[in-house]
Nucleic acid binder design. Structure first.
Length: 494
RNA sequence: GCCCCCAUGGUCUAGCGGUUAGGACACAGCCCUUUCAAGGCUAUAACAGGGGUUCGAGUCCCCUUGGGGGCACCA
């Protein structure tokens, strides 16, 4: 058993939580639970310009829906709070000052204008856009004097100008970069707020985080982060950089526009949409877990608790993964099929209700077994089972005409079927099946033709759950009404 | 432009020097069947290319190519 891990999910509340974040949070959760450690939720909200007020709530709802409960966070507190960076300004400042004091950071008085001009210049000359170090050698006493006099300043990290920095990533092994390619990055802005590079390192240290699991977009700044941590002399966490998700084609990552378009096909990369689209959190968890992680060469169905038991960092895969919604649908169908009838009924009900249907629980529990294996998403139930709840169905005339038969022949068959149904003491599968099959025999038509007519008449659809079961649930009276209507329609066509 | 990362079928992946390169989704066919599903069976399909190292390379090294990410007083 590994040592208890303290992991953190540290999103910034700037938009919707997407699948990539969900997967990061999942792995955080799994590692914490597996090792008996803690899962910390920290909100990185120091960018006030991009702040979205509803985002934090959405984030927590998403995590809860997925079943990923956290141990410490802004809503529940904990021993290392506050858990919102916007409430930790003084802490960052203290540590920044410490770095300045030890000569590993410095005050920089360069204006944004000078910096952008500098960058422009460097770009033109095809140079890497790095700070030129103008303020790097200003004596500390002088810098303090200027700062005290009210001059605007930022605090920059003093990167070594020679040598190399080597950092170990759990998925990729050692990564080495030349220090001259690392910028003297700004740690504290002129408004006194720390930037991510300082804030996150400080928080991870103060919160005693043992494993930093985050997206691979952070890989390029990993050496900087290591340098900062080493400048403080802090213990280095285990770095785990997860690969990004690519669009289904595997070519490039999904653009904002493409993400928004997805919803038209009933898909979404935003966690908040998934529930309404009829997806099960179990399916999301299983699917997302397997994008970048595997257990062995054949197991692929994992409940959240299976994952807690089986998860391990060394089975993580560093290569980018294309999002495969088809497989997502497969998982969702799988989990729908594995639900008990009462449970599925409970989950499907809100969708039927939302569609405007009056849903009786006992009746729903009869319907669920015959639609269960036909559902890919919960909201498929609306289309698939709507005819159970509608007052009347209006089958298209051409659908009522059986393949290979004339309208008149179809009408004749419908009429005979109607008579049989009328004559039954009760319309049950048991009572109806024999005589209706006998009708097929007698008429010399195929089951497909005869039952097809009845199906369309009774359900209004060419495709439906099993016919006899459906009729039993609908009830004799209504079935007869619908059959009469179909006969009338067919006769008109004749 | 510079830096970093990645590379097994269409997609997700197993493989950690010796395998008939395994599984899953998708696709196709067959079976089952009153439609649609579900289920069962079968088939098609991969080590990006080139150099090394080694008795032996999908596995180790280098280059090329392709893909991805990053270069803000955003995170």
């Amino acid at each position: 058993m590994e040592k208890p891990a303290r992991v953190r999910f540290a999103p910034s509340p700037t938009g919707h939580m997407h699948l990539g974040s969900a997967r990061t949070a999942l792995y955080d959760y799994l590692l914490a639970r597996k090792t008996g450690g803690q899962f910390v939720l920290r909100i990185e909200d120091t960018d006030f310009k991009r702040y979205v007020p509803s985002a934090e709530e959405e984030l927590m709802n998403g995590l809860r829906w997925l079943g990923l409960d956290w141990d410490e966070g802004p809503d529940k507190g904990g021993p290392y709070g506050p858990y919102r960076q916007s409430e930790r300004k003084e802490i960052y400042l203290k540590y920044a000052e410490q770095l300045v004091e030890s000569g590993q950071a410095y005050y920089c008085f360069c204006s944004p204008e000078r910096l952008s001009k500098l960058r422009e210049e460097q770009q033109k000359q095809k140079q890497p856009p790095l700070y030129d170090g103008l303020c790097r050698e200003i004596p500390l006493a002088e810098a303090r004097r200027r700062a005290a006099a009210g001059e605007k300043y930022t605090i920059r990290f003093k990167t070594p100008k020679s040598g190399v920095t080597t950092v170990r990533d759990a998925l990729r092994g050692e990564i080495t970069v030349e220090n001259r390619t690392i910028d003297d990055y700004i740690l504290v802005k002129s408004d006194g707020w720390a930037l991510y590079h300082l804030a996150a390192m400080v928080d991870d240290y103060e919160m005693k985080i043992t494993h930093v699991i985050r997206g691979s977009e952070w890989l390029p700044s990993l050496p900087l982060h290591a340098l900062i941590i080493r400048a403080f002399g802090w213990p280095e966490p285990e770095w785990v950089h997860l690969s990004v998700f690519l669009k289904p084609s595997g070519k490039g990552k999904m653009s904002k526009r493409e993400s928004a378009e997805l919803i038209k096909d009933g898909h979404s990369i935003f966690v908040k949409d998934l529930e309404a689209l009829g997806y099960l959190p179990e399916a999301v968890v299983n699917w997302v877990a397997l994008m970048g992680w595997s257990y062995d060469d054949h197991t692929e169905i994992f409940s959240l608790s299976d994952l807690v038991e089986k998860f391990s960092l060394d089975k993580l895969n560093p290569s980018p993964a294309a999002i495969n919604f088809t497989k997502f649908d497969y998982f969702n169908g799988y989990y729908i099929r594995s639900l008990s009838v009462p449970e599925l009924a409970k989950r499907v009900k809100p969708f039927l209700t939302a569609a405007g249907y009056q849903v009786d629980d006992d009746r729903l529990e009869k319907i669920v077994p015959i639609i269960q294996e036909r559902l890919n998403t919960l909201d498929d139930s609306v289309e698939m089972a709507g005819f159970f709840f509608k007052d009347e169905v209006v089958p298209a005339g051409e659908d009522l005409v059986a393949k290979g038969l004339t309208p008149a022949e179809s009408a004749e068959l419908a009429e005979q079927a109607l008579e049989i149904i009328r004559s039954l003491p009760e319309l049950t599968v048991h009572q109806a099946e024999q005589p209706l099959r006998a009708l097929v025999e007698r008429s010399g038509k195929t089951p497909q033709q005869v039952f097809g007519i009845i199906r369309v008449a009774v359900t209004g659809q060419r495709v439906s759950p099993p016919l006899f079961e459906s009729m039993e649930i609908i009830g004799k009276e209504i079935v007869i009404k619908r059959m009469e209507n179909a006969v009338a329609v067919l006769k008109k066509l004749s």
